[in-house]
Design a protein around this nucleic acid. Structure first.
Lengths: 135, 135
DNA sequence: GGAGAATAGTTCGCCAGCGAATGTTTCGTC
DNA sequence: GACGAAACATTCGCTGGCGAACTATTCTCC
């Protein structure tokens, strides 16, 4: 049911528009914010977000232009670059988190808690199996 | 869990590559093939596929170039255009259907039939609720 | 019955992402 | 220690899709 997925995506995007952010920007910030260090390399992010390296460079470009993120050339290994969340980026991320959590909650509210748990479990099993099946 | 969705999408695309087709092409053909008349207007298709009118025009262009589809200007209402599946398009669609069904089956095989039914039901309820919530 | 609103499709300029090729830096091995 | 292989990020050209403006046709209603 990818129609559902599209709807969900659209609903989430609509929610994010409230804080003036696009979905892909939020996803990237979210990955960064979920790390203790508040930073990661482009490759790591690209892997987690299932994005090509080229695409990742582009995303970081726009985020950096918006001052939500900073590029820091690594000293030990000068091929590497660390992408760090700025204060502004962190603020915007938390704002978006709230809006988004609200939207998500409203959507799954049609299912009672037990059902939500069942759904969650089934989806997780599918995900792990599919992931292992394709490396 | 949009990660799951992305994986599923990727897996399906990989499957379709076997018959040399892209996902969006298949989706469009599928909508056409699911109709008795084997044809539909661009607007109808755009609505079903959640695509902008502009995007739909582009898709039809490429499909028409590949001779999978034909544009037929309507006689009664000359603003309208009917998109009709060609024989070649229909053949390719059925070939893709088989490949795709196989891939889909393999993915949900980790769940036993009862679980599949539960998952299906939950997802459908989510979809209808989300759809009604946003017109 | 003619003017303006509505409808259907297309064109145009733009954007995010992809794959392939490129430039640097580091690693492995002889 | 030097040279080729590998790792990282970036640039380049291309593609699918979007929104807004445009064209052509039909509907509405005074």
């Amino acid at each position: 049911m990818q129609l559902l997925v599209k709807h969900v995506r659209l609903a989430k995007e609509a929610a994010l528009a409230e804080v003036g952010m696009q979905d892909f920007e939020f996803e990237t910030l979210h990955r960064l914010a979920s790390r203790d260090s508040r930073q990661a390399t482009p490759s790591e992010l690209a892997g987690e977000l299932m994005l090509s390296p080229a695409g990742m460079t582009g995303r970081i470009d726009t985020l950096e232009k918006a001052r939500l993120v900073r590029r820091i050339r690594s000293e030990e290994d000068r091929r590497r670059v660390d992408v760090a969340l700025t204060d502004k980026g962190h603020e915007l991320w938390s704002a978006a988190m709230q809006v988004r959590a609200r939207a998500e909650k409203a959507m799954v509210a049609v299912l009672d808690p037990d059902e939500q748990e069942v759904l969650d479990g089934l989806l997780k099993r599918l995900l792990t199996s599919v992931e292992s099946a394709r490396g």
